[in-house]
Amino acid sequence: MLYLLAFVIGIVAGLRAMLAPAAIAWAARLGGLHLEGSWLAFMGYRWTAPIWSLVALGEIVNDKLPTTPSRTVPPQFGARVAMGALSGAAIGISAGLWWLGLLLGATGAVAGTLGGAAARGALARAFGRDLPAALTEDAIAIVIAALVVHCL
């Protein structure tokens, strides 16, 4: 189950890169994810979750700006994979195999990035504009992230 969650949090990172580590930080802070003594222990520190949450909120706002580049260009794509890997590794630590969580999180991020871009494009065409599609994607990413936190 934990490995499925590592993949799913990667999908969240593919949709909204900073939402995945924010969710992981909240899971660690609330006690659902035990990272004490690991190289990711900082994710459970007092201020980590609020800081990641502010960064995630900034990303959600920035995503709606017309000057924001596509998620599939190398810097944005790389950031999503890195955040998926980090978040997946945190889940993998709980199962004793952080590296497997890292790989699954990164793989989920690739799937979320490419699938999310395709789905948002289709939704934008259906709506006739991008904003409703972007807001729908935000809602889906937030709900999935909350479900992951709940399951941890």
Results as ranks from 00 to 15, higher is better:
Tyr3Met: 14
Leu86Ser: 02
Phe127Gln: 07
Ile144Glu: 01
Leu114Glu: 07
Ala124Gly: 15
Leu135Trp: 10
Leu100Gly: 06
Ala90Arg: 01
Asp63His: 08
Arg129Met: 14
Asp138Ile: 02
Thr113His: 02
Ile91Trp: 02
Val8Asp: 06
Phe7Val: 06
Leu19Gly: 08
Gly31Asp: 04
Ala49Phe: 09
Arg80Lys: 12
Ala85Tyr: 01
Ile91Arg: 00
Ala141Asn: 09
Gly31Arg: 01
Asp138Trp: 04
Arg125Pro: 02
Ala13Met: 09
Leu103Pro: 00
Gly115Tyr: 08
Val73Ser: 05
Gly10Val: 08
Ala6Ser: 15
Leu33Asn: 02
Leu152Gly: 06
Cys151Asn: 14
Gly37Asn: 07
Ala20Met: 11
Val149Thr: 13
Pro132Leu: 11
Gly128Thr: 06
Pro21Cys: 01
Ala20Cys: 10
Ala118Lys: 15
Ala89Gln: 03
Ala41Arg: 10
Pro75Ser: 12
Ile9Phe: 05
Phe77Asp: 05
Ala95Glu: 15
Ile11Glu: 00
Gly128Cys: 06
Leu123Thr: 08
Gly112Ser: 04
Ala145Ser: 10
Tyr3Asn: 09
Ala139Met: 12
Asp130Val: 14
Arg16Tyr: 11
Leu30Met: 13
Ala146Thr: 13
Gly108Asn: 12
Pro69Gly: 06
Val73Glu: 13
Leu104Pro: 08
Thr107Ser: 15
Thr68Ser: 12
Ile51Glu: 11
Ala22Trp: 08
Ala89Leu: 02
Val81Arg: 03
Ala124Gln: 11
Trp26Phe: 03
Thr48Glu: 10
Pro132His: 12
Ile51Asp: 11
Gly37Val: 05
Leu86Asp: 01
Gly32Gln: 06
Met18Ile: 01
Gly14Pro: 00
Ala28Pro: 09
Ala27Lys: 11
Ala13Phe: 11
Ile144Gln: 04
Ala133Tyr: 10
Ala25Gly: 04
Glu36Trp: 09
Pro74Trp: 15
Leu147Thr: 11
Ala117Trp: 12
Met83Ser: 07
Met83Arg: 03
Leu54Gly: 15
Ala109Met: 07
Ala6Asp: 07
Phe77Tyr: 15
Ile142Asn: 00
Leu100Phe: 09
Ser87Met: 04
Asp63Leu: 06
Ala106Cys: 06
Leu15Asn: 05
Arg129Asp: 15
Ala118His: 11
Leu147Trp: 14
Arg29Glu: 11
Ser70Pro: 03
Arg46Val: 15
Gly121Leu: 05
Ala126Cys: 04
Gly32Lys: 07
Ile11Ser: 01
Thr113Met: 00
Ala145Asp: 09
Gly128Tyr: 03
Ala119Asn: 00
Ala106Lys: 07
Ala25Met: 10
Arg80Glu: 05
Gly112Cys: 06
Arg80Tyr: 05
Pro74Asn: 05
Ala79Val: 14
Gly121Glu: 12
Ala27Cys: 13
Ala20His: 11
Gly78Glu: 03
Ala6Cys: 04
Ala28Gln: 03
Leu57Tyr: 05
Ala126Ser: 13
Leu15Val: 08
Leu4Tyr: 02
Leu100Gln: 13
Val110Pro: 03
Arg71Met: 02
Trp26Arg: 00
Ala89Val: 04
Ile140Phe: 11
